[in-house]
Each structure stands twice: as structure tokens, then as C-alpha cells.
Design a binder for these strands. Structure first.
Length: 899
DNA sequence: TCCTTCACG
DNA sequence: ACGTACGTGAAGGAA
């Protein structure tokens, strides 16, 4: 085996990390995002390559030898952002603590040091990986020198690897010719001028033909195209200079002793202290080296079974496993896309994880039958899956019985590890096997994006069977392996019940809501769209007439110019990347300028048409219904979210918009029953704070906003003016959102001082609330997270920030998350209860939508009274609070009527 | 792809 | 002094 050296382009990676990772600061207020990102990238390569040697090269700030005479070029570079600059010495400190060699040399660029060391080391018979964000280094590629460029897309780091063949495939030139190509096309980011007008295409073609600029100069007469000929002929000196600038010096007199760069222990006590200081919790795990018993070795046991007998044997092993050991958990994963199954994977033990592709004898029907059998044979919670809801179609037995969308499979056999991971940290963006492996098993695995990129499963099943096997095996294996640490963590955080009694049962409720869908009158929807289209056309012409020209009204940029420059409207101040044309700004201008009102109307109508009328139409399926998706692992507070389409933001507030609700209709012989909680968040606040006055107000069933107004403004209940009530209502909302005088002043268009007075008076009226929200903030400050009534956590790292804005945000979140989150917990309990009661009684009515504090049931006409009773009861009693949970229920023949 | 705007709770 | 209300998702424009 050849030994391995990893060479890292320090500034390049630090720079990428700085711009790729959102701003982080530690308790001292030091920015740490570049450090964090750098380490993330470095660990990734260390984990993957397990190098024998490692070295990081940095530039020193002084002008470099190669560029000394041409400092003017380099001199035009933008100065480094101070937040980044302060992290440069820190990364060096960290690297030294981790016993990682740093090279830098006065007068030389990191490129030159990397080039020299790479070439010399490769010549000694080592494999070298050069890690950089910079394509300049491609010229260094050779048989044993691989250039590795990490790219962060959507938070996932992908790596582009370049050996000489890769450079040739991509650019059509050899690594050495790459220098000449660059000399022609230039590089603005590196201040290499090149020949103006010559781009990558032309440069590549010319170098392929002539191989270097010297030969090109000899053939200036015959160059094609003429544009390139002219440009190059006129800029011979500049191209020569460019080549000089682009060439990496591979013969720098650098004092580099390979043995010094041998990997020592990275995880020294000094490094531990620094990681703690910078608050890099996820990296700290590396120091404990707690043996999870989970290793990549399992990779060796990943197999792709094809023989029919092997498939039977695998299922037999799985059944045997769950029956003989009730504590054992098996992992399951499925490759499903657009309703088509390409294969499944089962992890039966650490030594046995297999993938079964759908092919030949092994049909989708056969596999789903075997799966249903496995589930039925399974005594208890032993099947671990990620994103279970997406796989439940596979567990729906009896294909002939299609009228009943209801699952027959028992619910308590499954564990969803993605949901468990979500509960433990709901702020992650995704809960895929690779992120779970990293967070809970200490394993770094290639993500799906890294293995497949944009390849669809259908394509992969055809051409990349092995990759697909590896992918699915990793998922089922991690589902199995991660359960132990996940379960332990859930226990430690007292989230067992939240997981087993709320989130897991909810998976099945949401699955059936999605399967059920909601009926839409497509003719009425179309008509609504046409009506909007006509109104939009009229408004559009009027706006153009008023403006004196045609322009794109939907472009904030163009609109800003028209309103604030051409028409000279005042207060166009609020800017960031131009003028703000948000509704609240325009509303202030509307009384004086009639165009503005038309623009507001235009906006409203185009929104309605594009998002709702046209948007929803595209989601109506053949059964005349929309089957949206409810997401259970998205929000930081525990709410569910709705996508494709979003059925939780259908218009209701405006007269024109709410009409869209008329197109949502129940199936024939059914009606809608819509029940919503009345001010559930304020009631939760009353309960959780224990404030006697607020509890009393609710228990005497008073109009809460009026009561608040009466208390805050010291007027008798019956003499509260509408304005006072409105203000009090805004204060109530503000309390739930995490009150700030600024926010309230914005909402009510009053001064900050006045808003502060309202808040003060509110706290005088309800002293228990003040105490409670102070406690919420103090708790979050101490622990770094907040909790709901049902122990749902929301991490709030911002609350310890030294940055005022971030810290204030953290404080508001600390006030809001327990309230919004508890409301989410309660309606989830209500949903499960409604679902169970409908099912137990064998009713035809179905729960079909949830909108945060509202449940919509499509109820059979013969069951209306029973279901009304059942819904109200389930919702009211979902949680026992010090105040009653009032529920408003209405019946209707469309969603507008029912709400 | 990021930003702005706006629909909902 | 800082410059915001909490939580979402979709569409269209700009780059």
C-alpha cells in the first residue's frame, strides 16, 4: 500500500468555509464559522482517506516572489473581511493543537508550496491528495496526485476529484496545458488578464490544437476564430505574463520534512480545550471515542442478493431475529420513486445487511407480501426505518381492497429513526442516513447526493446497481445501528412518550390524511382563475396608463424605480437592495396615489392566480382530489408543515381570496366538519404561566382581548373602545411571539415608547406572565434550549450570542417556542384521538387536513352528529389545562362555509 | 440559487 | 448602538 499525504490549501478552504457556513460566534463573541467549516471539510477527508501524513499550507501576507513585480494585479484584490481575518490565526492555533504541520514561506504563495511538496512527495512514491477550492491547482494533477475540490450545495459537501484523465475529460487539455489555457482565457478572480474576448471554449479548442501559447504565437496567422486571432495578436505580452502568473512554482526552496508531517494524535487535550472554547460540540464527540460498536466494517457485509433462495433466506433470518430476540431491531430501507419500487434493503445484524433489487422473480408484489408477513410476525417495535410515512404504501396489504385507504398493518411494529433524530435536534435541515450516522454513530458516510448526484432511481437501477445496493444498505444499516443511541438519548431527554405516544402514531394519521386527499371542484377553480385573469388584465392597463409606460409590475426593482424615482413618491427610504415595495410601505402611499392601490390589488390578484388558482390546479389528481404532503420533521417548534401543495396557507383573510375555499368540497354524500381551537396559544400561556388573572379571564368565558384592554387601559369591561380592544389583541399576540416594543410599535404603527408603555401596563395587569416569560428566557440561557409541556426541545444557541440582534432573537424564540410547540403537541394528540375514534367505531368519516389549530374532517352525512361530538370531545380533552380548551365547530358544503 | 413578497397559523 | 415581532411554503424576478 502506498502511503498517503493530504495537502490542504489553507486560505482557500478557510475562505470557502467562511462564505459557506452561516455566521457563528462563541461566548466571547469570536466569529467561528470559517473555523467550523474548515474543520468539517478537513475531518471529512481525514475520515475518508485516513492519511499517514497531513500538511496545511498558507500564504503570508507580504507580496510573493512570483508576483512581486506585478503586485498591482494582486493589489486589486478585495481586502479580507475582518470577521474572516480574525479566524486566520485561530485556525493555525487549532491545527498546531491537533499536531498538524503548517507550511508557509515569506515571499511564496500557498499554491507554490503545495505544488513543490506535492511533486516531491509523489516522486517519493506516496499518494497525494491536494484539497483546495481553487481550480488553479488542476495543473498539478498527475498519476499519484489527485486534486480534490469540495463544493457545498444545499448544505451537503460534495467533492470533485481530478486526476489527469478527469482534467482532460472536463477541459480537453492535460494538466500542464491547463496553464496555457488559463493564460488565454484569464481568470478575473485571480487577476490574470488573459486575452480579452477569449473564453473557456475558444481557449480549450486552441490549446487542444496547439498545446501551448508558444506554438500559438508561431501560428498567429492561421488562428481561428478571427476574434481570437485579433485579441491574441494584440496581447502577446499580456498572454505571456498571464502564463507566468498562472504557473505554479514547483521548485520552491522549502524546508519540508515529510516525517514531521506524519499524523500524530489529532485529539490532544489542547485541541479539546480549543474546541470547547469555540463551542464545537459536534466535534467534541471525537475526543471521547466512546465505542458505539458501530463501524464502517459493516460495509464489508453489504451484499446484493439476486438468487431467489437468498431472498427467502434473508426474510427467514429477519423473522427469526425479531421473534427470538425481542430487544433486537432490524433495519429497513426502500428505493421508491414515483410509486415504483426498485428494491429494498434489510439489516438483520451487524454482519448481515442486504439489498434485494426488484427484478425477475422478485417482483414488487412478492416483496410487499413478504414485508407484510414480516411485520405481522414481528412481536413489537422492532422495525427501524427512516421516513416511514414514505414507505407505508409498501405495507398496505390486500391490493384488491382498494376502496379502503386505511392501513391494515399494525402500527406499533415500527420505529422511525429520522423522527427520533428530529426530536433530538429539530433544527437540522434533513434527517437522512448520512446525517444520522454522523450525529449518532460517529460515522462519516457518503450521502445520497455524493453517490448518485442528480441520477434518478430509475436510471441508477439500470446502470448503477452496485451504488444503489450500497446506498440502501447504508440506510437500513444505519436505521438499525442508530436506534440504540437514539433511544438512549430520547430516554435521557425524557422524550420517550413524545416519541412513542405522539410522533410515531402521528405518522400513520398523516399517511392516511395524505392518502385520502381533499376533493377540489376543478371547473370552479378554473372559472375562478379566469375571473382573476380578466381583472388582472384591466388593472395592468390602468397601471401602465398611470405610470406612463409599461413595465413588469411584479418586479420590485422596476416597480421601485417607477414609484420612487419616476413618480417621485416620498419615503422610498427603506432599502437593502433597492427600494422596498412591501405591502406595508405601499399601504401608506395608497391614499394619496391611486396607482399604488391598483398595484396592491394587482399583487393580490396575481398571487391568487399564480399560487392558488393555477398552482392548485396542477395538483389535482385523477381521482379529482389533491394529495398533498404533510411533513413531520421540518419545523423547529414541532408543528407539521404542508407541501406540494401547501394546504395550510389557503386564503381566508381577504374577501376575494377566501372564495378559493369554495372549490374545496366533500365527496358526494359527505359534508365538511371544521373545528378550530379558540386562541389555543393564549390559553396555553395562561396555563403554563399559572397567572391567576388570565386563567380567571378564560374560565369566566370573557372576550379575552376586551378583558385585556379593560385591564391594561383601566377602563370598565363594557366601555372598552374598538381601538383599545385592537391594541390589546396586538399585545396578546406580541406576548406569544416574544414581545418587543419595537415589534409591537411596527404592528400598531405607534411609537416605540408608546408600545413599551402598553407592554409595561400589560405586565402590571398580568404579573404572572412577566415572571413566567422571564423564567423561560432564563431557562433557555442556562440550558441552551427550551421545552414544551410534553418535553419537546428547541435548541436556542443564539441566546448565548454576544451579538445583540442574535441574542434578542434567541430571547424571543425562548418565549415563543414553548407556547407554539405546546399547541403543536396538543393538536397532534387531538389528531391521533380523532383518528383512533373514527377507526374504532368503523366510521366512514375521515380526517383530511390540519392547519395548526384547525382540523378538517370529511364526514359522512349519516355520521355528522356523532363525528361532531367526537371531534369536539377529542380536541377539548387532548390535554388537561387550568383553562378550558374551547373548540369552534362548523359544518359546511365547502371549506369556506365550514370555517 | 438567492431574495423579495405574500398567503396562512 | 445595534434594527426585529414567532412559525411555515410557493412564485417570480434577478443574478
Amino acid at each position: 500500500m502506498r502511503k498517503k499525504l493530504i495537502l490542504i490549501d489553507g486560505h482557500s478552504i478557510l475562505n470557502r468555509a467562511f462564505y459557506g457556513v452561516p455566521d457563528l460566534t462563541n461566548a466571547e463573541g469570536i466569529h467561528t464559522n470559517a473555523l467550523y467549516g474548515f474543520l468539517n471539510i478537513m475531518f471529512r477527508f481525514i475520515d475518508e482517506e485516513k492519511p499517514d501524513y497531513i500538511t496545511v499550507a498558507f500564504d503570508l501576507s507580504a507580496p510573493t516572489f512570483r508576483h512581486k513585480e506585478y503586485a498591482a494585479y494582486k493589489g486589486t484584490r478585495k481586502p479580507m473581511a475582518p470577521e474572516l481575518k480574525q479566524q486566520v490565526p485561530l485556525i493555525k492555533e487549532l491545527l498546531r493543537a491537533m499536531q498538524i504541520t503548517i507550511v508557509e514561506k515569506e515571499g511564496y504563495e500557498a499554491d507554490d508550496l503545495l505544488g513543490t511538496i506535492a511533486k516531491k512527495t509523489a516522486a517519493k512514491g506516496l499518494d497525494v491528495s491536494v484539497i483546495s477550492g481553487d481550480r488553479d491547482l488542476l495543473q498539478l494533477a498527475e498519476e499519484h496526485i489527485k486534486i480534490r475540490i469540495p463544493k457545498t450545495k444545499k448544505g451537503v459537501t460534495e467533492v470533485e476529484d481530478y486526476l489527469p484523465a478527469d482534467v482532460e475529460t472536463l477541459y480537453g487539455v492535460t494538466p500542464l496545458e491547463f496553464i496555457d489555457m488559463k493564460a488565454l482565457m484569464g481568470d478575473t478572480s485571480d487577476n490574470i488578464p488573459g486575452a480579452p474576448g477569449v473564453g473557456p471554449k475558444t481557449a480549450s479548442a486552441l490549446i487542444t490544437q496547439y498545446h501551448n501559447i508558444e506554438t500559438i504565437f508561431e501560428h498567429l496567422d492561421e488562428l481561428k476564430p478571427p476574434k481570437a486571432k485579433k485579441s491574441i495578436s494584440e496581447n502577446v505580452e499580456q498572454v505571456k505574463l498571464s502564463k507566468f502568473l498562472a504557473t505554479i512554482d514547483i521548485d520552491v526552496p522549502v524546508d519540508y520534512d515529510l516525517e514531521n508531517a506524519a499524523v500524530g494524535g489529532y485529539y490532544t487535550p489542547e485541541a479539546y480545550e480549543l474546541f470547547k472554547r469555540f463551542n464545537f460540540k459536534s466535534f467534541l464527540k471525537r475526543f471521547n471515542q466512546e465505542d458505539t460498536g458501530i463501524t464502517l466494517e459493516a460495509d464489508r457485509y453489504f451484499t446484493c442478493v439476486t438468487e431467489f433462495s437468498e431472498v427467502e433466506e434473508l426474510f427467514a433470518q429477519a423473522q427469526n431475529k425479531v421473534r427470538t430476540d425481542k430487544n433486537a431491531v432490524i433495519g429497513f430501507a426502500a428505493a421508491v420513486e414515483k410509486g415504483i419500487l426498485y428494491g429494498i434493503s434489510l439489516a438483520v445484524s451487524p454482519e448481515k445487511t442486504a439489498y434485494i433489487p426488484v427484478s425477475g422473480f422478485v417482483t414488487q408484489e412478492y416483496l410487499t407480501d413478504k414485508l407484510s408477513e414480516l411485520v405481522q410476525q414481528c412481536p413489537s417495535r422492532q422495525i427501524a426505518v427512516m421516513a416511514l410515512k414514505e414507505k407505508l404504501d409498501l405495507f398496505r396489504n390486500c391490493p384488491g381492497d382498494s376502496k379502503d385507504t386505511r392501513l391494515k398493518v399494525s402500527q406499533d411494529k415500527f420505529i422511525d429513526t429520522a423522527i427520533a433524530a428530529y426530536l433530538l435536534n429539530p433544527t437540522n435541515q434533513e434527517y437522512t442516513y448520512d446525517t444520522i450516522a454522523k450525529d449518532f454513530c460517529g460515522l462519516t458516510l457518503n450521502s445520497r447526493a455524493e453517490l448518485l448526484g442528480k441520477t434518478t432511481l430509475a436510471e441508477a437501477a439500470d446502470t448503477q446497481q452496485e451504488t444503489l445496493c450500497r446506498l440502501l444498505c447504508m440506510e437500513s444499516y444505519i436505521a438499525m445501528a442508530a436506534w440504540k443511541p437514539l433511544y438512549k438519548a430520547l430516554e435521557e431527554e425524557n422524550m420517550r412518550s413524545l416519541f412513542f405516544d405522539i410522533e410515531m402514531p402521528l405518522v400513520f394519521v398523516l399517511y392516511e390524511m395524505q392518502a385520502e386527499g381533499i376533493r377540489v371542484d376543478s371547473a370552479a377553480l378554473k372559472e375562478y382563475g379566469t375571473m382573476l385573469g380578466e381583472k388582472i388584465a384591466v388593472l395592468e392597463q390602468e397601471i401602465y396608463a398611470d405610470a406612463g409606460e409599461t413595465f413588469n409590475i411584479n418586479s420590485p426593482k422596476q416597480l421601485g424605480v417607477i414609484l420612487f424615482e419616476k413618480m417621485g413618491m416620498p419615503n422610498g427610504k427603506k432599502t437593502k437592495s433597492g427600494y422596498s415595495t412591501a405591502a406595508d410601505i405601499l399601504e401608506k402611499l395608497a391614499p394619496e396615489y391611486p396607482v399604488v392601490q391598483k398595484i396592491l390589488d394587482y399583487r393580490q390578484m396575481t398571487k391568487l392566480k399564480s399560487t392558488y388558482a393555477d398552482g392548485l390546479a396542477g395538483y389535482i389528481q385523477e381521482d379529482g382530489r389533491i394529495h398533498g404532503t404533510f411533513n413531520q420533521t421540518i419545523t423547529a417548534t414541532g408543528r407539521i408543515s404542508s407541501t406540494e401543495p401547501n394546504l395550510q396557507n389557503i386564503p381566508i383573510r381577504m374577501e376575494l381570496g377566501k372564495k378559493i375555499r369554495q372549490v374545496f368540497i366533500p365527496r358526494d354524500g359527505y359534508v365538511f366538519l371544521d373545528a378550530d381551537y379558540s386562541q389555543i396559544e393564549l390559553r396555553i400561556l395562561a396555563h403554563m404561566s399559572g397567572d391567576e388573572k388570565l386563567i380567571e379571564a378564560y374560565n369566566s368565558a370573557q372576550d379575552i382581548h376586551r378583558t385585556t384592554a379593560s385591564q391594561v387601559f383601566h377602563v370598565p369591561f363594557d366601555e372598552v373602545t374598538p381601538e383599545q380592544r385592537r391594541n390589546a389583541k396586538a399585545v396578546n399576540f406580541g406576548i406569544v411571539y416574544g414581545i418587543s416594543s419595537f415589534g409591537l410599535s411596527q404592528d400598531l404603527s405607534i411609537s416605540k415608547k408608546q408600545a413599551a408603555e402598553y407592554i409595561e401596563k400589560y405586565f402590571e395587569a398580568y404579573p404572572g406572565i412577566k415572571v413566567y416569560i422571564d423564567e423561560l428566557v432564563a431557562f433557555a440561557k442556562e440550558h441552551g434550549y427550551s421545552l414544551t409541556m410534553f418535553n419537546r426541545r428547541r435548541p436556542i444557541p443564539e441566546i448565548k450570542s454576544s451579538n445583540f440582534m442574535q441574542r434578542s432573537f434567541g430571547e424571543r424564540v425562548a418565549m415563543n417556542a414553548p407556547i407554539q410547540g405546546t399547541a403543536a403537541d396538543i393538536i397532534k394528540l387531538a389528531m391521533i384521538e380523532v383518528y383512533n375514534r373514527l377507526k374504532e367505531r368503523g366510521l366512514k368519516s375521515r380526517l383530511i387536513l390540519q392547519v395548526h389549530d384547525e382540523l378538517l374532517v370529511e364526514a359522512h352525512q349519516d355520521e355528522v352528529e356523532e363525528v361532531k361530538q367526537l371531534m369536539t370531545d377529542a380536541m377539548k380533552n387532548a390535554a388537561k389545562l387550568a383553562v378550558v380548551l374551547e373548540v369552534d365547530l362548523k359544518e359546511g358544503k365547502n371549506w369556506l362555509e365550514a370555517h
